[in-house]
Amino acid sequence: MNPVSTHAAHGWRRLRGEPASRALLALLLVLALGCVFHSDGAFFKAGTHRDALRQASVYGILACGMTLVIISGGIDLAVGSVLALAAVLFSLTTIHWGWSPWLAIPFVLTVGAACGLASGGVAAGWRIQPFIATLAMMVFARGLAKTVSGGMKVSTAVQQADGAYRYVDVPGVFRGIDSRVLGGNLSVVTLILAVCVAVGWVLLARHRWGRQLYAIGGNEEAARLSGVPVTRTKLFAYVASGLFAAVAGLCQAAQEQQGDPEAGIGYELTAIAIVVMGGTSLMGGRGGMGLTLLGMLTIGYLEKILSLNAVPEASRLMLTGVIIVLAVLAQRRRRG
């Protein structure tokens, strides 16, 4: 094979054309924005960055699973509802039923994975469009969360047999997840996000399954004729997405100290925005976990900078919408 062209300008242009460079550029622009509008130096405080990361973590964890599904050429709209279901179940089992976290956490994760298995089975096995299959799960899981919780927030106010409410302690596991490490400079949820990104990255970049997922997203028929177990591979992406959504639900419950059946509404769209912002293609076959991390940081910091500067939420939403379009426009691949 001929050697790679070593011409410097060519190399630079190539680098600039890489999705990773472009996602990084978007992040740097947002950070530069923060340096300019630093709100009396607030942007330069460590606590600001810790909070920015903490606030973005739940979305980021959802985006990890979303990345896997999108690379396979699908979409998962159910993650917000699965998050709510997980939060409700986690609160119910630990606060009300007094389960040990060693039992509650595996249980909640299993339920999340089961949701993914169901929607993935419908999408991959029965070949129903992923949009529809996961939309159905989105509605179903929301209903299940409301059923399990009786339609109310599952909090530390536990109703007694005589109808009176008694407040119980917040479980230790909630406090643990919502705490900080490294001298108060890093939230535990951010650490959990880092683990999720790492696991997702290893699966995508280093495991056979990840390569097969890219192949399916890039050309399902070619993948099938190359011996890739298409159904199983896709199914696993949805299971992973359900699992990540359940992890996000654990974090959400711990941070709010309750399980809200209405939690996570619209989160699936933020997760998709993060993935797209990073440069992963909605057509499938292109993208990666590193890109999603960059996309998450970009959106997370953007939110933080806007709120630091006391931009009202209404304007913030509009600005975010505009910026998503601009970022995706900038990332559009130029076809030769």
Binding site: R211, Q212, Y214, A215, G218, N219, E221, A222, A223, L225, S226, G227, V228, S281, G285, R286
Partner: peptide, 17 residues
């Protein structure tokens, strides 16, 4: 249509099967 995964690299396509 059915031979290559166009967005993937030469190495990824060569090793796919």
């Amino acid at each position: 249509a059915s031979g290559l995964v166009l967005p993937l690299s030469i190495a990824a396509n060569t090793t796919l099967a």
